[in-house]
Simulated scan of single mutants.
Amino acid sequence: MDRDSAPQEITSLVGREVYTNNGVFIGEVEDLRLNLDSENVTGLALHELNRELFGAEISSARGIIVPYRWVQSVGDVIIVNDIVERIQRQKDDEDAEDEVAA
């Protein structure tokens, strides 16, 4: 995000789609987590999550919160680090190890 540009209303983030820097859809911004003392956005509350990434976890939850420090850029869409994909790969690797051990 260009820090020298004119500030925007934080509510303009609501409704934007969130993708990893590899182009994988994560979800849509539903709300923001704020630190009122420092007047900063600390997280993006996402819903309409990608079922392939989150599978069974999303059936029991309303959404997820992505730390704002993961955000790389904000435009028509929001781009975040590929950390979400890495977490999913680790989970898949753990599931595969459990299947082998069973």
Rank of each mutant, 00 (worst) to 15 (best):
D2G: 02
D2T: 01
R3P: 14
R3A: 15
D4F: 13
D4V: 11
S5Q: 15
P7R: 10
P7L: 09
P7T: 07
Q8A: 07
Q8E: 10
E9Q: 07
E9T: 04
E9V: 07
E9L: 07
E9N: 08
I10T: 13
T11H: 02
T11A: 04
L13S: 02
L13T: 00
G15C: 00
E17D: 15
E17K: 15
V18D: 01
V18T: 01
V18Q: 07
Y19D: 12
T20P: 06
N21E: 13
N21R: 12
N21F: 13
N22P: 07
G23P: 10
V24D: 14
V24R: 12
V24A: 14
F25P: 03
F25T: 08
F25M: 05
I26Y: 05
I26T: 08
G27R: 02
E28H: 00
E28T: 09
V29F: 01
E30N: 12
E30L: 11
E30D: 01
L32R: 01
L32H: 01
L32Y: 09
R33P: 07
R33N: 08
L34W: 04
L36K: 12
L36P: 00
D37Q: 05
S38N: 14
S38E: 13
S38V: 06
E39F: 10
N40S: 05
T42H: 05
L44D: 03
A45K: 12
A45D: 14
A45S: 15
L46Y: 02
L46F: 11
H47D: 09
H47Y: 13
R51W: 14
R51G: 01
R51I: 05
E52P: 09
F54K: 04
F54C: 02
G55D: 12
G55K: 04
A56I: 13
E57R: 13
E57L: 14
E57Q: 15
E57K: 10
I58D: 08
I58N: 04
S59P: 09
S59L: 11
S60K: 14
S60W: 05
S60E: 03
A61M: 11
A61G: 01
A61K: 11
R62A: 00
R62E: 09
G63V: 03
V66K: 05
P67G: 04
P67M: 04
P67I: 03
Y68D: 11
R69D: 14
R69T: 11
S73L: 13
S73K: 15
S73P: 13
V74Y: 07
V74A: 03
G75C: 08
G75A: 10
G75I: 08
D76M: 11
D76C: 03
V77G: 10
V77D: 06
I79K: 08
I79C: 10
I79N: 04
V80Y: 03
N81K: 14
N81Q: 06
N81M: 04
I83V: 08
I83A: 09
I83W: 10
R86M: 08
R86W: 05
R89K: 13
Q90R: 03
Q90M: 11
Q90D: 09
K91F: 00
D92V: 04
D92S: 01
D92M: 11
D93T: 01
D93F: 07
D93P: 10
E94N: 06
D95S: 06
D95P: 02
E97Q: 05
E97P: 05
D98F: 13
D98G: 07
D98P: 00
D98K: 15
V100C: 11
V100Y: 15
V100R: 15
